[in-house]
Simulated assay, not measured.
Amino acid sequence: MCHAGPVTESGESSSHRSRQIRPGTVHGLDAHLIETPNARAAISVFGGQVLSFRPVGTGHDVVWVSPVLADLPTPIRGGIPVCWPYFAREGQTGDVPSHGYARTARWAITGSVVAETGEVEVSLAPEGLDHLGLRLSMTVRVGATLEQGIHTHNPGATTARLTEALHNYFRVSDVADVRVEGLAGLTYADKFDGGAIHPQHGEWTLPDSPARSDRLYPGAGGTYRIIDPGFDRVIEIQGRQARTAVVWNPGAEVAQGMADVGPHWREFVCVEIANAGPDVIQIDAGATHSMWQTISVAPVS
């Protein structure tokens, strides 16, 4: 296991590097570091996942990364993993990795733009996945908000089916003290209850007994707000072309069996945008599907 460490810079240079975009490390992982007047961010080379987003003036990072990470190529626990070209093992047969191949691929910057306002946009793509048929790329825009889109192109001659997610791990003061708005009145499939369907009564809060959550909300497709009084902040997630919401925290008992979570399960809640469960995406031959999210932070009013 490796322990998370500070952000450091390296001396690598390329055509896509600038004062605002540079190589370095975060949590001991090679990363693309991005700095703007309004925020700093980091995107891991391994997995292409956002490992840090810290708007200016905030006391805590918006995303959570495990302080005890497994050695690569074990997937990184935390940040914003890209689950693609399927969520969990939905629709798959045989021995395949959970949440697909993108989160263990190496990701390279393919383009970048620095706006006059200082906002930075980077385009990235995973390497070594051409055998999957579909083509994946990603856009990340860093400014006062974090905007992220994953784009799937179908170069084939027939329609392709896809499930996907941006598996957001959000840092919170204590998962037992936060609530998630935007899910009341929906129904969810409870993976801790064999996939049984239940109604969501009121806003999401961590259940009392057992204190854990693995809920998939089909047809949600909207805006979700994490209200965190302990950190005095509201994290808002706006999804676009994302029909599904997922809310996950393993709870104490399951976390005991997860070396990269363990006693740290209270420090995060996963509120994910996705197209999963019954919300399968079909991409026509020659077409491209994009799923976007915008993450913003504000004080509790």
Rank of each mutant, 00 (worst) to 15 (best):
E164D: 08
L162S: 04
G24Q: 06
R135C: 04
R225K: 05
S137K: 03
T139V: 13
S290C: 08
A165M: 07
V180L: 10
T93D: 13
G194W: 07
R225H: 05
G111K: 13
A245N: 11
L186T: 05
V7I: 13
V172F: 02
V280C: 02
I34D: 01
G222E: 04
V26W: 12
T158M: 14
R161M: 05
P299T: 15
A274S: 12
P55V: 01
V45Q: 15
D193G: 05
Q293Y: 03
T152E: 13
A165W: 07
D284C: 08
G239R: 11
D95K: 08
E253R: 05
A41T: 03
S13D: 09
I80V: 12
I237Q: 07
K191Q: 14
R233D: 14
T117R: 00
T25F: 10
Q256R: 07
R233K: 08
F46G: 09
I295N: 02
V271F: 09
D214K: 01
N38M: 00
V140H: 00
G149H: 01
F268T: 05
V140I: 01
H3P: 04
V65E: 00
T139S: 12
V300C: 06
G128V: 07
P97D: 03
A42C: 02
R212K: 09
I150N: 06
T145S: 10
S15V: 07
G222W: 04
V247F: 10
A242N: 04
N249Y: 01
H198R: 12
A70S: 12
T294K: 06
V56Q: 14
E90L: 12
E12S: 11
S14T: 14
D61N: 10
S137R: 05
D260H: 06
T158D: 15
V254M: 15
G185D: 06
E119M: 00
R266V: 05
V269S: 08
A274C: 10
R22Y: 14
C83D: 06
R135M: 05
E121K: 01
V63P: 02
W107P: 03
S44Y: 05
T117L: 00
V261R: 05
A287M: 11
G194K: 08
A255C: 11
T25E: 14
G11I: 13
R266L: 08
S123I: 07
A125K: 13
R54C: 08
Y188I: 04
V68R: 13
M291T: 00
A287F: 09
A176V: 02
D208H: 02
G221W: 02
H32T: 14
S137E: 09
P85N: 09
G59S: 14
Q20R: 07
E116A: 08
V26Q: 11
P250E: 15
M1A: 13
T158C: 12
V254P: 03
